[in-house]
Computed example of a mutant assay.
Amino acid sequence: MTAPAVHQAASLLLCYPGEGWERTRDLVAAALAPLPGEAAAALRRFCAAAARSSPLELGTRYVATFDRTRRRTLHMTYYIDGDTRRRGMSLARIKALYRAHGWRPEEAELPDFLPLMLEFAARCPDPGTALLHRHRAGLDLLGAALASYGSAYADVVLAVTETLGEPSAEQRRLAQAIAEEGPPAESVGPAPFTMAHDPAAQGART
Rank of each mutant, 00 (worst) to 15 (best):
I178G: 00
T2Q: 12
A10I: 09
E170Y: 00
A49G: 14
A137W: 03
P125Q: 10
T77D: 02
A154W: 03
A31D: 14
E162C: 14
I94C: 03
T73V: 11
T84H: 09
D112N: 09
A121K: 02
M1K: 03
F193W: 11
S53R: 15
K95P: 00
A42P: 04
E22C: 06
P17L: 11
A50Q: 12
L27K: 10
G150Y: 06
T69P: 11
P125Y: 11
C15Q: 15
A108C: 01
L174P: 02
A40C: 01
A147D: 12
T129G: 10
E107G: 08
E109H: 10
P167H: 05
Y78E: 05
V188I: 13
A92D: 07
L110C: 02
I80K: 09
F66S: 11
Y78R: 04
T129H: 09
A5K: 05
L132Y: 09
R104W: 01
E186P: 07
A108V: 14
P127Y: 05
A33R: 07
E186A: 13
L142V: 05
T65E: 09
T161P: 05
F46C: 09
H135K: 02
P4S: 12
E181M: 05
H101E: 13
V160S: 01
A33K: 11
L35F: 07
S11P: 09
A96D: 12
L27Q: 13
I80S: 14
G182D: 10
D26S: 13
T60H: 06
R99N: 08
F120Y: 09
